[in-house]
Every structure is written in structure tokens, then in C-alpha cells.
Amino acid sequence: MKIIKAEKVTFEYIRRDEEGNVEGINRAVDNVSLDVKEGDFISILGANGSGKSTFAKHLNSILLPTEGTVWVDGMDTKDEEKINKIRQTAGMVFQNPDNQIIGQVVDEDVAFGPENMGIPTEEIKERVEEALKTVGMYEFIKRSPNSLSGGQKQRVSIAGVLAMHPKCIVLDEPTAMLDPTGRKEVIRALRALNEVEGITIILITHYMEETVYSDKIFVMHKGSIAMEGTPREVFSRVDELKEYKLEVPQITLLAHTLRQRGLRIPECVLTVKELTDAIKNC
């Protein structure tokens, strides 16, 4: 079953000058087709301005494609009647932790989604507690979001989406504004969601290290998909990634350098363990 299917998606927006005359047309997403299998952990990589965030907003009907179609769990995102169902199936977490928390208390924020869905009070309570436990934020249930760290706020946002019982969560650069500790917290929470709860994760980022464990990576460049494959396949193309303003993780780069200098090290090394194994065999 394909949870997300995008077919030839193009998104254009029109730039206007101060008088409202058309200045030009920007093609932010250009003919993108991709499939996501239910239960997968997908990463979309790309430099700033590569169109990855614009594309992500198509996955739960915030933006509608100028051309092409996006299906979420078989529903066309253009279908206005299904819009609530689509948003509940594919939840979304954004970059700035401060700008997506609505409630003044953690539990009230997590409840926002279920409240919109019209879930009975008793069930909301259960869902809120369950969601906060899943992301490891239960002990903060009565705290003010303003007193939390960036990583904790993002986990609250993830819980807010989880409480809507989605099949898929799309995260638009959730770690871009966090410190290394916060980034680790968020990525760990996402991996657990994917592995334990079987929720499909679509992670949009420009931090390569975060994508090492994905099932599949898509690299976007100038609105189109420039590369796709497993992390191993993608990271082995070090020079190509550089062209797309991206960088491989340092360990991969070290292995790549050693290989260039004549050591017999396999094509693509992702972790320290793989590197030590490879060196042992030299």
C-alpha cells in the first residue's frame, strides 16, 4: 500500500510587484513524482531553496499542486471534502518550535488536534497522555511550553500530531533551530515512532547525519528530485552531493578520502562501526 503517492507534481507561484503586476513565475516544485510505502522512514534532503518545504506542504493539502496530483492514503489532496481526513492521516510538524504551539499548557496544546476532530473529552485525555508518553514528555504535561527547551517543544509538537492518530507524519526541518542535544532527542523520538508504532515518517532536513537510518532518501535540487536511493547509494556519490550544496557525514567523508588514497574500503561507509570493520580488513 502506498501511503503517499505524488505524480508529476509542479507548483508555481506568481511574483507580483507593488502594483500587483506579474513580475515572473517561480517554479518551486518541478515535476516531482515519488511513492512512499506505509511504515517507511523517508528523508528528503536539499539545500535552502531547493523546494523541499514547498513540496512537503503538498502532503497534507496546505498547498495544492499547480499541475499533477498527490494522493494521501488513496485520497486526492484536491478533494475538499476529504481535507480533514487527509490532515488527520498525514500530520505535519514545522521548523520553528515556538510558532506551532497553540496551548499555554502542554496538555492543552497536544489536545488541540483531537479537539478539532470533535473527539469526546474522555478519549482526548487518553490520547494526550498516550501521545506524551510515546515521545517521552509525559512528566511535562502540566508545564508551560515557554519553559521547555527547543527539543522538548518539538517533541510536544510531535505529540500534538500523534494525538490525531495519523498514519504518516511529515516533518519540515524539525531540527533546524535546535542544538545538538535537541536534534538527537527529536530524531530518537522519530525512529521510535517508526519502529515501534509503525508510523510512516517523512523527514525533511539538511543534516545528513539524521538521514543515515532512513529506508530511502530523496535529494531535491532546484525543485526536482536529483537523486534517490538508500542512504548507502546516495552517500556514495560524494561529489554529486556537493554540487547540490550538501555534504556527506564526516565518517563517510573520511572513508571516501581513505579510499581515494588507495585503501581497500567499500564504496560507502555510514557508521564508525563499518569504518573500523573496513580498516580491520585492510
Binding site: N60, R87, N99, Q100, E115, V161, M164
Partner: peptide, 27 residues
């Protein structure tokens, strides 16, 4: 303004559609 538009987007993404048919965690 940026925060406002971000927040509006986040609320929309979480299925906000006005007060009709909403329930409450703490009614």
C-alpha cells in the same frame, strides 16, 4: 507577522476549522 502566518499554517495542518464541532479537553 511571520509568527502569525506560521501559526495559522500549523493550526490549519492540525485540522482547525473554526469553533464548529470542536470538543474540549477540559470542558
Amino acid at each position: 507577522f511571520r509568527r502569525a502566518s506560521d501559526l495559522a499554517l500549523a493550526m490549519e495542518a492540525r485540522g482547525y476549522h473554526g469553533g464548529e464541532g470542536r470538543t474540549k479537553l477540559y470542558p
